[in-house]
């Protein structure tokens, strides 16, 4: 068990390190550096540009720059932004809370849709309800999240005026307002999470409800819905957990565009900003964090599975 945990953590660290190399090399190899982007402004001589490049350390070898960056990151210092007076660490710190809130709320909404829906299907498989919900899931997997977000804004915010169209209020300032602002982006991303999870959980539940122990439970006098909820659901949730981890991990990318739609001041919006300015220092920090979130999600899910499922634990020890 301990050996499994150590090996799994080591794999995560390795993945993250590889990601950091990919990010860094990509950002240094691509054409157009921030100084050149600035050099188009009048009044900058070649010497001044060289001087600036030197100050930012851009004239050193890639390896030296990478080691410098990495040693900073490990101490929690993401370096200086090329453009803003704030350090990358400060910029990220102000943006990370809204992003994490949105990701958590979206996951919550997604599960609150997917789990009850899958249970409802398992109670009466292949009924009209099953057909409606399954088609809904297929639709949810195909809908472009940003389009769904725009439609929600058009109808719920502009037509009906129930929610604000865009913006953000910190939770500590006004919890209720914060929830009103997070509602639409969270529902949008929640649908993106719910659709694949519903499909997966439905298949897992239908599989489990056919197994002997569920039939035994029913034979012993449990009502069908009791057998499904108490006996089948926990067993179907196990494999689904890993799947949810994958879905949430891939949702992190989608959040970038959703933050743009809703004017949400998170890391995704910061990334889009920095791309336009070629602010490598900020970009590499944000992208590394995204990769870290992805790696961490799958790590947590894998470890959780082992903790919850005794069968996996036995496999580990043999």
């Amino acid at each position: 068990m301990m050996r499994f945990v150590i090996r799994r953590v080591a794999v995560s660290v390795l993945m993250l390190w590889l990601a950091s190399v990919v990010i860094f090399v990509t950002l240094r190899v691509i054409p157009g550096d921030p100084i050149a982007a600035r050099g188009t402004l009048p009044g900058f001589t070649a010497e001044q540009m060289a001087q600036l490049r030197h100050e930012l350390g851009l004239d050193r070898s890639i390896l030296a720059q990478y080691l410098d960056w990495m040693s900073g990151v490990l101490r929690g210092d993401f370096g200086q932004s090329f453009f803003s007076d704030f350090s990358t660490t400060e910029l990220i710190a102000t943006r990370i809370v809204p992003s994490v809130e949105l990701a958590l709320m979206a996951t919550l909404v997604g599960l609150l849709i997917a789990v009850p829906a899958a249970v409802a299907i398992a109670l009466r498989p292949h009924s009209w309800l099953d057909r409606v919900l399954s088609s809904g899931a297929a639709g949810g997997m195909a809908v472009p999240p940003f389009w769904l977000g725009i439609l929600l804004v058009a109808f719920l915010s502009i037509e009906l005026g129930w929610f604000p169209t865009r913006g953000y209020v910190p939770f500590v300032e006004d919890p209720l307002e914060n929830l009103r602002f997070v509602a639409l982006p969270a529902v949008t991303m929640g649908v993106v999470v719910a659709a694949p999870v519903l499909r997966f959980l439905r298949a897992a539940l239908l599989d489990v409800t056919r197994s002997d122990f569920v039939r035994t439970a029913e034979g012993k006098g449990l009502l069908w819905h009791e057998a499904v909820v108490r006996h089948a659901l926990p067993n179907a949730l196990m494999p689904t957990l890993t799947f949810v981890g994958m879905v949430v991990g891939s949702m992190l990318g989608g959040i970038v565009v959703i933050e743009y739609v809703f004017g949400w001041p998170g890391l995704g919006a910061l990334a889009v900003d920095s791309v336009g300015k070629r602010d490598y220092a900020v970009l590499q920090g944000v992208v590394l964090l995204a990769a870290a979130a992805f790696v961490l999600t799958s790590l947590v899910v894998d470890l959780l599975s082992v903790v919850i499922d005794p069968r996996l634990r036995d496999q580990m020890s043999t």
Binding site: L14, M15, L16, L18, A19, V21, V22, I23, T26, L27, I30, P31, G32, S250, L252, G253, G254, V256, V257, A271, V272, V275, G276, R278, L283, V286, V287, A290, A291, F294, V295
Partner: peptide, 23 residues
């Protein structure tokens, strides 16, 4: 396959944003 893992831990849209801005 480890290179694949490394690349796939970065959301496609982020890499795409960077590369499209550059090229």
């Amino acid at each position: 396959m480890r290179i694949v893992d490394g690349i796939m831990s970065i959301p496609i849209i982020l890499t795409a944003l960077i590369l499209v801005a550059a090229f």
